[in-house]
């Protein structure tokens, strides 16, 4: 019998503006997310993680893999360039359509997936972004959470994607650690039984994260 998986997609901005401390903090944050999830028995049995990064283009840095076997990839970013958030969402939809299993007569489906988008800017590919934000909304994600990191991150485009927007004022190690700890508790609560229409209840964010309304 295959275990029902909880797919978790991390969609991370690696555009040029992330160079330096932000990207370093992000790497440490992702690593600490993996480590803390590994201390959660439920997550260790059911969470599958995929990392999508985007800058001039979007790519699947780590295909969906179980937390047990997951190895944190090298996350790097170019010197400069565009922020192709729309392309990243397009890739997210493709991955989800391909990877997330549905209930069938003979197999139990996966839990509805979670997606976290972290960006420190605004989409360069606006038209694609708008179209793809709608595509994401049409898909049965248990929750899509967007995090606007730093002062340059724009909230308006993120509102098209989800109601769950959080603001990270600074992009230092401390803030990212708080963010990913919270992501970890959100993933843990995603394992609970959910209603057909209900969206998951997010745990309260840490003080470094501001809820955007």
């Amino acid at each position: 019998m295959s275990v029902r998986r909880l797919p978790v997609y991390l969609v991370l901005d690696t555009s040029g503006s992330m160079r330096g401390e932000p990207i370093q903090s992000l790497k440490v944050g992702v690593q600490s997310l993996i480590s803390s999830l590994r201390q959660d028995p439920h997550a260790l049995e059911s969470v599958y993680i995929s990392i999508i990064t985007f800058d001039n283009e979007a790519r699947v840095l780590s295909p969906l893999e179980s937390l047990e076997t997951f190895q944190t990839p090298l996350i790097d970013c170019p010197q400069s360039g565009a922020t192709m958030t729309g392309a990243a969402l397009e890739l997210l939809c493709q991955c989800m359509d391909r990877e997330v299993r549905k209930n069938t007569e003979t197999d139990k489906g996966d839990w509805r997936p979670l997606a976290f988008l972290m960006t420190d800017g605004s989409p360069s590919d606006t038209a694609l972004y708008n179209a793809m934000a709608e595509e994401v909304r049409r898909r049965p994600f248990a929750s899509v959470i967007a995090c606007a990191a730093g002062i340059k991150a724009k909230h308006e485009p993120l509102k098209k994607l989800t109601e769950n927007i959080f603001n990270l004022e600074t992009m230092d190690g401390h803030s990212f650690a708080g963010l990913f700890q919270w992501v970890s508790s959100t993933v843990s609560s995603g394992n609970r039984s959910m209603g057909a229409s209900a969206s998951i209840t997010l745990p309260p964010p840490p003080p470094e994260i501001q809820v955007v309304i």
Binding site: N103, D110, W111
Partner: peptide
């Protein structure tokens, strides 16, 4: 069983 496309999806007597 009342199930949806994904795990954990069901309906309730409270709906």
């Amino acid at each position: 069983a009342d199930g949806g496309e994904h795990a954990g999806q069901t309906t309730f007597v409270t709906i």
